[in-house]
């Protein structure tokens, strides 16, 4: 049984955290914020017709796996990604890769991972973690959203890897085959910054980007006429998607601000990115104010006192403010 030296790091978000740790392990220093920014995964989407647990999908980032794929494409990583038909072969392959001394990324459900506390266990199937060793019937796991590395019974992880349903992981395992030794930051950053700004500003569908944020704001205003319990649950759901799901605060806006700051020194003529970072930080602060307004609304005993217009207007303001950051970036690229 081989055991690789693997250093666990505490990250804000699972997928970008996994990729950051994996790259560092392969000899490429890349912060979580840099992984997130370079992948172009920063986004917004509101899909009222796609319900998860009775609530419409509200996402502050792009689809699961888009960080792995987006980053790989941008900086030239070659990643082995494999899914499996049945749990037995999926477990066998993981054990074999660990025996070879590899550090392996996996997609799993959150609900079936026993090391998650009860309060955090929801049916979310696109969680990411790293398995870096095995000992008898246990895996040694580096879960980026936990402060320290954890242990998990093999049978439990296998169950979590093979749940069915929305975003079913199908036992997905991934590890890098080729990692670049250096990155052409000027080129890669320009590409990623453009991709995100364009996506946010110029998306043709009204449910994504800045238009998606405005669409959600409009729906919040319409909650006045809806069932009061549903209205409160819906508002709480927005806050959970923004703050609870490993976003590093304010729906990834702070991570992105961190990325912009780091980029300013890496890109030729990137000084304007330092300003963009500050602006994005303020956008993040406003998202937190928006969450605070919602928390007060949920807490209030008298539902008829909730002013949905105020909450919706706050989000419209944020949409305007956020769009200015992307415009500024596009103008200076």
């Amino acid at each position: 049984m081989s055991r690789v030296e693997f250093i666990h790091n505490h990250h804000a978000h699972c997928e970008s955290g996994v990729v950051s740790s994996m790259m560092r392990h392969s000899g490429l220093e890349l912060s979580e914020a840099m992984v997130f920014g370079l992948s172009g995964a920063m986004s917004f989407a509101y899909l009222p017709f796609l319900k998860l647990g009775g609530m419409p999908l509200v996402a502050y980032r792009s689809m699961p796996k888009s960080i792995i794929k987006g980053l790989s494409k941008n900086i030239g990583i070659k990643m082995s990604m494999q899914t499996f038909k049945d749990p037995a072969s999926g477990e066998q392959m993981l054990d074999k890769l660990l025996d070879e001394g590899r550090v392996v990324g996996a997609q799993s459900s959150v609900f079936w991972l026993p090391y998650f506390p009860e309060q955090m266990r929801f049916h979310f199937n696109a969680h990411n973690l790293i398995i870096y060793a095995q000992e008898r019937d246990e895996y040694l796991i580096s879960d980026p959203v936990f402060e320290h590395s954890v242990r998990c019974e093999k049978s439990a992880l296998t169950k979590a890897r093979f749940v069915k349903g929305v975003m079913a992981p199908k036992g997905l395992l991934y590890y890098p085959l080729i990692v670049p030794t250096e990155i052409d930051y000027d080129k890669s950053l320009r590409k990623a910054l453009k991709k995100t700004a364009k996506m946010m500003l110029k998306t043709p569908v009204p449910i994504a980007g800045i238009r998606g944020i405005r669409y959600l704001a409009k729906h919040i205003k319409k909650l006045q006429k809806k069932d009061k319990r549903y209205a409160k649950l819906f508002l709480g759901h927005i806050v959970r998607m923004q703050e609870e799901i490993g976003t590093g605060g304010a729906g990834f806006r702070y991570i992105y601000a961190s990325f912009l700051q780091e980029s300013s020194a890496l890109m030729d003529g990137g000084d304007f990115l330092a300003d963009a970072s500050k602006q994005m930080s303020s956008v993040g602060d406003e998202y937190r104010q928006f969450a605070l307004l919602i928390a007060k609304a949920i807490r209030s005993k008298k539902s008829e006192n909730i002013d949905f217009d105020v909450i919706g207007d706050k989000l419209l303001e944020i949409a305007d403010q956020e769009s200015l950051v992307y415009k500024m970036i596009l103008d200076n690229l």
Binding site: E32, G236, S277
Partner: peptide, 18 residues
């Protein structure tokens, strides 16, 4: 920018508890 370990925000607690 850097990472700060947080013991949580009451606003998030409110939403999760709900």
């Amino acid at each position: 920018y850097d990472i700060v370990a947080s013991t949580g925000w009451s606003v998030e607690e409110e939403a999760t508890k709900q």
